[in-house]
């Protein structure tokens, strides 16, 4: 049997917010920027950053989506799986400064292609006006140097570019904050995956 051909990708365009992140328009969202609740077990943290274009200017109309395992390394993907306290998926539209922010927990380690545990990471899907195809990347954590060094996916990334996938740790007003900027182009262009 001949295979069907994939439907082509198109840009999300500049005007998705009233549909995909519609709280500001008075409509219920499928997902907000917190894939957890205050009761979710695990180390609570904030991930924040900016999306920047090749001129270093903020991308003010990007949609950042994250998908992650819970603190035990389990994905909430089965129907009825996950829990009221853990969705694992979140969305955030960038603001005029290109900023996004997620409040979540640190994911646990998940087995990789060879069965060994990967370093804790969060999957990212990025779309924006001007992106004809969505982009996949991953957020790793600065304070997991040992696990990062052994991670089977990071090891496929040229060493000089691995840093673009590492969120930098900072403490602010008692909250654990990780900084993760996404550079679409330029010297610090973020690594995007063919996956």
């Amino acid at each position: 049997m001949t295979r069907l051909r994939q439907t082509p990708s198109q840009t999300v365009g500049p005007y998705f917010a009233y549909a995909l992140t519609p709280e500001a328009y008075g409509y219920a969202a499928i997902a907000g920027n917190r894939p957890v609740t205050a009761e979710t077990p695990g180390r609570h943290l904030v991930i924040e950053g900016r999306v920047l274009d090749g001129a270093g200017d903020p991308v003010e109309d990007a949609l950042v989506e994250i998908w992650q395992a819970d603190a035990r390394g389990r994905y909430a993907d089965a129907p009825g799986g996950g829990s009221a306290d853990f969705v694992g998926f979140a969305r955030c539209g960038t603001d005029a400064e290109g900023r996004f922010r997620f409040e979540t927990v640190k994911p646990g380690r998940v087995p990789g292609p060879d069965g060994r545990l990967m370093a804790p990471h969060i999957h990212v899907c990025l779309t924006a006006r001007g992106l004809l195809n969505h982009l996949f990347t991953r957020i790793y954590f600065e304070d997991e140097a040992e696990a990062n060094a052994a991670d089977p996916i990071l090891s496929l990334v040229p060493e000089s570019r691995r840093g673009t996938l590492i969120a930098r740790r900072a403490h602010r007003h008692g909250a654990l904050v990780y900084r993760f900027d996404i550079h679409l182009q330029g010297e610090r262009e973020t690594v995007f995956f063919e996956v």
Binding site: V110, G130, L131, L132, P152, R161, L184, Q185, E194
Partner: peptide, 16 residues
């Protein structure tokens, strides 16, 4: 100014 200029890095699909 928005499309990435470097080739995508091929990686195997993992659980996530």
């Amino acid at each position: 100014l928005r499309g990435p200029t470097r080739p995508l890095v091929p990686v195997p699909q993992t659980l996530g």
